[in-house]
Structure formats: C-alpha cells, structure tokens
C-alpha cells in the first residue's frame, strides 16, 4: 500500500459528513457477520486475554504480597517501639481468639514481641474519614497500661502543606507515646497537662482530630477483647 488516507486529525474525514447509507455505499461491499462469529471472536479473544492476565498475575502476586508484608512489618515495628517480630491475631466477636484464622471478617491485631520474646504491645489499624478522603492509621496500644504507644499514618490524601502534617510533622507524631486512651485533642496553647492529651496541629485541626477520633473509635471497638487477649497471655 503506497498511499493512504491522511490521519483523522489533520483533515476532516469527508465520509463522516455522509449518512450511514451513503457511507456504506462508498465502501466495498461487506458481508454481515453471523452472530455466532461475533460471539466466537470475542470469546476467543477474551479467553486469550484471560490467559495472559493469569500468567502475569502468577508472576506478580508473590512480589506484591511480599511488599505489602514488608510495609506492614515496618509500620508495626514503628508503632510498637522495640518490637522485633510480630504475630497476627484474629479477634473472634465473642472474645476468644483464634490464631491465624483466615477469614477477613474478623478484627485483626498484631502482637509485637521484643528480642527476648516479651510482649511489647498490640498494633492495630484504624480507618476513618479525614478532611479530604479516608485516612488509614496504624497505632500501638499497651493493654497493661491502657496507653497508646505509637502512631503512623498508612494512607491519607490530606491537603499538602496543611493536613499532611499529620504524617510529616514529627512534633505531632511523637506525641503518641504513652498517652492514656481514650485520647483527647487540644488546641495549641490550651494544654492542661492531662495524661490523655494530644496537642493538635495549628492549621490542621480537622486532620489532627480525625486521627484522634479514628484511634479512639478503633480502640473502643476492640479494647475489651484485646485486654482479655493480653490477660490470658494470648499470642504467646
């Protein structure tokens, strides 16, 4: 083929101005395809596409999982100071714990251990509405003292420069160390020195409060069961 129609962009294609009937008349006669052929073509194409995706998935899945585990491990050791390894524990609704159950409906917490095998605390993930979008927070909790011992934002889309200080402002993040739960957010300059107090970031009050609310709500949900687990020496 030595010549071709110009691309659609640089010149309007004249046939577009014609009705469907005229357009068909311009083109060489086409045989209407049978519906069997239509369905068959798509089915074959779909099957091939599916096969290709499955092959890539098989290759990618372990890598994606490994990365997720790595991120989670980093976060757990971050919020449980001194944790060397952790174990996933599923909390059954009744209060008894089923270690390593594989259902996703159960609440899961991560029990952290230090080098000698002593438990340092329990980490858990809380989710809630922020200023822009959902915020996912992981935090450490010590059932013995009832204190929050660490916090890290896993996911947030807060306003850069303002709300994202909940992740980046170290003076805010560092406060979540031995604060008695439930936490209480206070504006800067109005601190009372209470053991439950967290000073919120000026200019990012909504995002700061969101973090505190998420932690409180999540703790309220699972606190009894986590305390029970801790008392019974669960996870060891």
């Amino acid at each position: 083929m030595s010549e071709e129609r110009l691309p659609a962009v640089s010149t309007p294609v004249p046939s577009l101005a014609l009705g469907p009937e005229e357009r068909r008349a311009q083109e060489p006669l086409r045989v209407e395809s049978s519906s069997v052929r239509l369905v068959g073509t798509l089915a074959v194409a779909g099957a091939l596409a599916g096969l290709a995706i499955v092959l890539v998935f098989q290759w990618a899945e372990p890598r994606i999982e490994a990365w997720r585990a790595e991120v989670l491990a980093a976060a757990v050791t971050e919020v449980l100071a001194g944790a060397d390894r952790y174990e996933t524990v599923f909390l059954a609704p009744t209060g008894s714990s089923i270690a390593d159950a594989d259902t996703t409906d159960l609440d899961r917490v991560y029990v952290g251990y230090d080098r000698v095998g002593d438990r340092v605390g329990v980490a858990m993930v809380g989710v809630g509405a922020g200023f822009q979008d959902v915020i996912r927070v992981i935090f450490g909790y010590h059932p013995g003292s009832g204190e929050v011992i660490g916090m890290q934002v896993l996911e947030s889309k807060e306003t850069p420069g303002l709300g994202d200080k909940i992740e980046k402002d170290s003076t805010f993040v560092i406060q979540f160390d031995r604060v008695l739960a439930p936490l209480e957010g206070l504006k800067a300059g109005r601190e009372t020195g209470a053991p439950t107090e967290v000073t919120m970031i000026t200019g990012a009050t909504i995002s700061s409060r969101a973090i505190i609310d998420i932690i409180n709500a999540r703790l309220e949900e699972v606190r009894e069961r986590v305390d029970e687990l801790w008392m019974s020496g669960g996870g060891t």
């Binding site: 395809s33 073509t41 798509l42 194409a45 779909g46 890539v56």
Partner: peptide, 24 residues
C-alpha cells in the same frame, strides 16, 4: 475482528494490556 464488535474487541485488548501494566 468483525466490524460489528470491533470496539468491544479493542476495549478487550486495551483492558488486557492495562491489567498487565497495573500488575507489573
């Protein structure tokens, strides 16, 4: 590719490549 289902076929091809790109 029959004319009648060409758009569906293109979308199928494109979607396959997008999924692969996503996974990779």
């Amino acid at each position: 590719i029959p004319r009648e289902v060409r758009i569906s076929a293109y979308i199928l091809v494109i979607a396959t490549f997008v999924t692969i790109a996503d996974l990779v």
